[in-house]
Design a protein around this nucleic acid. Structure first.
Lengths: 199, 199
DNA sequence: GGGTGCATGTAATGGGTTACATGATTCT
DNA sequence: AGAATCATGTAACCCATTACATGCACCC
């Protein structure tokens, strides 16, 4: 059967250890806290919360609001914490994520070098912006001595930082190589044109 | 509708530019060439080849063998090359892959530091082995001046190498920090025990 | 004799995203 | 007036992996 144990409910349990929250809150928090290595859509969050409640891993209470829709606030239970701890102890098996940029680069010879160059330049732009955000965020978390979780949060942030830096270094060296290839191709083209002209 | 254009057929087209191949061959080749950033299962390859043939992007002929099952050999057509080129020109949008190891580390405070430490040590082992393979493979591709694709293959291999190195550096520094945390926790535990004993 | 490799294919299953529905409030 | 935010939820769809089916040959 090999159920592809998805960890989609476990993120919810994990974040609920910080404090009780609604599904909507969880969605927000996922984006800003673990967003650089984990995504969850609401189409996944809401049904999973229901399942967790049915299993007794979380409890829910409805909070009425004026002008705004009701909120369902979920809290993790003792049983939920046990489940979380058990999941944490299972060694994560290494996954190979798909990387479309690399795949396209792999077939780069099929098109003009201008195309992989443009793709890489776009990547550099995006990642440079991300890097800036990251360094700022790191500073903010750095001073945080409140939560016992803070050191762990810093470690994952640091991962993102180092990976980004590695990507940028690679992109820089790769762009240089691609431009060299483009240069050679251009010179060849020019030479061919000259030959044609002088013929 | 937003069809999540999956690039699953495009890998096949791309690899078929190297030479005509069977679905089985494609599966093998995917694993050894782009395997470190792209996976494809046979349950995906065979139906996709059929679809590509129906669209006229590849042609197929059956090759009889003695003792072994027949092979269906696929070749890319002119139309297929066009499709591939068009796909290559579309800028890949950055994807955020899920990383279970990081997710578990993020919630590391919920359990004994021994657990994230063990997870990281396992990662280091696996990635060190991979790194060795990578360096060997790089050497082999390095001398390859045959294919015009070779430079591009080298670039993607280099990406894998730099990323692995970054991961290992991060793991090393993170393990050190985790061990420090484990040490402090141990000392505290000891002190508490002493206090209890002297009480 | 039993495992592994070659080779193709389909069906079951399940994870996950996107789109849609609803509706009040607040900002531009 | 119209867009965005808050808030929950469901249905449609899609993509992908896994399991299963078949069958011969080769090696230990």
């Amino acid at each position: 059967m090999a159920r592809r144990s998805s960890s989609s409910s476990e993120v919810l349990l994990g974040l609920l250890t910080i404090q009780p929250m609604s599904g909507y809150d969880l969605g927000q928090l996922i984006r800003i806290s673990v967003g650089h290595f984990w995504r969850e859509s609401y189409g996944q969050i809401y049904p999973n919360l229901k399942r967790l409640a049915a299993e007794g891993l979380v409890t829910a209470k409805t909070e009425r609001q004026k002008g705004k829709p009701d909120r369902r606030i979920y809290s993790i239970t003792g049983k939920g914490r046990e489940r979380l701890a058990k999941w944490l102890a299972v060694a994560p098996q290494p996954e190979i994520p798909r990387n479309e940029l690399l795949l396209k680069l792999f077939f780069g010879a099929q098109v003009s070098p201008a195309i992989p160059i443009a793709n890489l330049e776009r990547l550099v732009e995006v990642e440079r912006a991300l890097l800036k955000q990251f360094r700022q965020a790191e500073q903010e978390i750095a001073g945080n001595r409140q939560y016992p979780d803070a050191p762990y949060w810093r470690m994952t942030a640091r991962f993102g930082l180092l990976e980004l830096e590695a990507h940028l270094r690679w992109a820089k060296e790769t762009l240089a190589e691609l431009r060299k290839i483009a240069g050679i191709r251009k010179r060849n083209t020019v030479r061919k044109e000259k030959r044609h002209a002088s013929k």
